[in-house]
Design a binder for these strands. Structure first.
Lengths: 224, 224
DNA sequence: AAATCCAGTCACAAACGCGTCACAAGGCTG
DNA sequence: CAGCCTTGTGACGCGTTTGTGACTGGATTT
C-alpha cells in the first residue's frame, strides 16, 4: 500500500501524528521555505497557507510545481476568507483546490481520505489521456501526441473542465460556473470566445479538435 | 441553473431547509428504505447513515447504485467512528467518500459546495432505450443501433418528448406545449413539418419509423 | 362517385446561433 | 512605471434552423 506524504505549514503535523491511527499509511512533514524536508515514495499532499512565514503562499505553490520532486503533489491552498479573487489566484498558481481556514485536523484528513478513497477516479483527474490528448493536471500541461500545447491559464482550466465532464453537453452556464467565474457575472457569449481560443491553441500545436458544438445547447468533449 | 438534490437520512433535511438561503438551488429529501421519494433534474447527493432503520447503510448504498435513477448520485457514507475496516467496506459498496459522524448541517453543505465549486459534480445521466433506439440525455445524442442520428435542436426535443410520453396519443397542441413553444402562438400544422423532418432524419441515419400517425388526433410513440 | 378532410412535402424568407475580429481594461513582469 | 500578456466585450458576417403557405395525394364521409 502506498504511503501518503502530507506536507503542512505550522504545527498541525505533530498534532495529526497522534490523531491518526494507522501510522503506516501517512507521513507528516512541515513545509518550510525550502519545501518539505523528507520525501518518501507515494502520493503527496501539501496544505499551503495563504501567508506562510515571509513567503507568500502563491509563491510557495509555484515552487512546489516547479520542483520536479513535488510537481505531482496535490496542493490545497488554505485561505483566510472566502474571497473569489484569492481563489482564482490560488488556482492559477497551480493549486488543485482550496479550503477556507483555519485548517483543522479533521479538515485535513477529510480531504486526503476522501480523495484518496476514490483512488481510480483521482488518478484519472491527475493525468488524463484520450487518444492523442494528454492532460497533466499537476504540471498544468496539456500535450498532443506528446507535443506540449501552450495554453493560457483560462484555456487550460477550460480544457480540464471538459476532460472532467466528457460525453455530456456543457452549457455556457455550466462552463462559467465550472471555471468559478460566477462573480462578476459573465456574458454567455464570452464562452464562445474561450472555445475559439482553446481550439486555436490546440490546432496551432498540431492537434485536432476535441470539442464539438451542439447548436443552441453548448459544447461536448467527445470521448471514445 | 441546475438544482442539486440532497438525500439525507434522519431529520437533518428539514433543519437544512431552514438553514439554506438559496432555496432554488437545493432540494432536500429524506432517504427511506425505498430510496428517495422525489426525483428532480440535476446532480444528486446522498448521505447514508452507517445504520439506518433496519437496513444496513451498506445495503442502502448498493441499492442506490443499482437503481438507474440514482446510480450516478454522489454517495457519502456517514460513519460513527473512524474504523479503517468500515471505510473500506463503505467504498467497496459503492460510496464515493465518507465523513465521520455525526452529520452536521455545515458538514453537509461544506461537502456539497466544495465539490460543486470544483466542478466534479456528477449529474444523473439519464438514458432512454427502446429497441434499437437509444437517447442519451446527457450528451443530447440519439442513436439507432448505436449509429448516431444527427438531429437538429428542435428534432431532438421532439424525439425526447415522445420518449418521455410513450404509448400515448399526443395532440399537436400537446407537442407545441411540450416543447415550450406556446409563445408566440404556433400554427398546429407546423407540427406536421416537425414530424416529417424528424422521421426523415432518423431514416437517413438508417433507422425505422418509431412515430405512428393517428388520423385527426395526433401522433404516438409506440413502445413494446 | 363526388365532396370533404387530413397529413406529407416543398420552397422560401426571416430569425437565430456561432465563429471571429479588434479593442479596451486590467494584471503581471522586469 | 513601462510594456507585454491575458481576458471580457460588442460588432459583424455567414451558415443553419425553423415557421409558414401552398400544393398534392390518400382517406373518409355523404
Amino acid at each position: 500500500m502506498d504511503v501518503i506524504n502530507i506536507f503542512l505549514t505550522g504545527e498541525l503535523g505533530e498534532s495529526l501524528e497522534d490523531f491518526v491511527h494507522d501510522q503506516r499509511r501517512f507521513t507528516f512533514d512541515k513545509l518550510g521555505p525550502d519545501g518539505p524536508r523528507r520525501l518518501v515514495e507515494g502520493p503527496m499532499w501539501a496544505f499551503v497557507d495563504w501567508v506562510m512565514d515571509d513567503l507568500a503562499g502563491l509563491e510557495m505553490c509555484r515552487r512546489l510545481r516547479a520542483d520536479p520532486r513535488t510537481a505531482d503533489a496535490h496542493v490545497t491552498m488554505v485561505l483566510e476568507e472566502d474571497d473569489p479573487e484569492d481563489r482564482r489566484r490560488a488556482l492559477r498558481a497551480g493549486a488543485d483546490d482550496y479550503v477556507v481556514g483555519p485548517l483543522t485536523r479533521t479538515a485535513v484528513l477529510d480531504r486526503v481520505l476522501a480523495l484518496q478513497s476514490r483512488g481510480v477516479e483521482r488518478h484519472a483527474t491527475r493525468r488524463f489521456e484520450a487518444g492523442a490528448l494528454t492532460i497533466d493536471m499537476a504540471a498544468l500541461q496539456a500535450r498532443w501526441n506528446g507535443e506540449p500545447i501552450p495554453l493560457r491559464p483560462n484555456e487550460f482550466r477550460l480544457l480540464r473542465y471538459f476532460a472532467e465532464n466528457p460525453n455530456r453537453v456543457l452549457t455556457r452556464e455550466d462552463l462559467i460556473g465550472g471555471l468559478g467565474k460566477r462573480e462578476p457575472p459573465i456574458d454567455e457569449r464570452t464562452v464562445d470566445v474561450w472555445i475559439g481560443r482553446l481550439r486555436r491553441a490546440i490546432k496551432v500545436a498540431g492537434g485536432g479538435n476535441p470539442l464539438r458544438t451542439v447548436r443552441s445547447m453548448g459544447y461536448v468533449f467527445d470521448l471514445n
